[in-house]
């Protein structure tokens, strides 16, 4: 479904991602973990076209998307969320999701049809399914942190992606909210037959839903496998428990 080969990126001498290769199958859930500064966000930015890699390639369903612009990659079926919540904060929750639907259906240049009535059913269904129906007319930037994360997820899902990348979906959430997000993700992957990649700090989240775990350390993948294998991996333990955290 998604394949990454020998991806490499450096910023003025500092190597952020180095020879990263992995692949994800359809409907698989891959967690990318690693200490702060391991290069997780850079990796996501390389895959989604936010940054162009120095070397290597990214394949989405066998098609080469390396270095393509973000909007192209998005139209090809990849959705994402950002580590720092990234939504249309001055638009209402309804408009956030509706805009994403308009974009997905390629109606962005339609200058005749009024926007407010368009795609109402679809928008409302999406808000309903993510439990945002009550917040429909709230200005998105005024929602709680968790609420904004939900809106971002809704924006990403409205594009009907086949591959979804979530950068720390539970960051800054309470234990209860985290539990809800896990259940939600589980359900969505099932319902929409999604392939999911996510980064996460909370190991409980990782081990409760990931099918595969990749460990990133100093820009390299140092372990990649089933959660149980990775948990037992000596190197990973040393990174997390030993010197790697400093």
């Amino acid at each position: 479904m998604l394949e990454v080969r020998d991806l490499r990126k450096s910023f003025s001498g500092f190597v952020a991602t180095s020879d990263v290769s992995f692949s994800v199958r359809r409907k698989q859930i891959l967690a990318v973990i690693g200490p702060n500064g391991a290069g997780k966000s850079t990796l996501f930015n390389l895959i989604t076209g936010h940054l162009a890699p120095d070397r290597g390639e990214v394949l989405l369903e066998g098609r080469d998307i390396t270095g393509a612009s973000p909007h192209r990659i998005c139209r090809m079926g990849m959705g994402r969320s950002f580590q720092r919540t990234n939504i249309f904060s001055r638009l209402t929750v309804y408009e956030n999701v509706q805009a994403s639907l308009i974009a997905h259906q390629g109606r962005g240049l339609n200058m005749w049809r009024r926007s407010d009535a368009q795609l109402r059913d679809k928008t409302e269904a999406m808000l309903q399914s993510l439990g945002l129906a009550d917040e429909c007319d709230t200005v998105a930037g005024e929602l709680s942190h968790g609420g904004q994360k939900q809106v971002e997820l809704a924006i990403a899902l409205a594009g009907e992606p086949r591959v979804l990348l979530l950068d720390e979906p539970t960051a800054g959430m309470s234990a209860q909210e985290t539990g809800e997000v896990i259940r939600l993700l589980d359900r969505i992957v099932e319902e929409r037959e999604l392939t999911l990649l996510f980064t996460e700090h909370d190991m409980d989240v990782v081990f409760s839903i990931a099918h595969v775990v990749a460990v990133l350390h100093q820009g390299r993948i140092v372990a990649n496998g089933a959660p149980e294998e990775v948990r037992r991996d000596a190197l990973v333990r040393s990174i997390y428990l030993g010197g790697g955290m400093h």
């Binding site: 139209r75 990234n86 939504i87 997905h104």
Partner: peptide
Amino acid sequence: DNLERTQFIG
């Protein structure tokens, strides 16, 4: 409102 996010909705 958010140029970057607009790119990522395609």
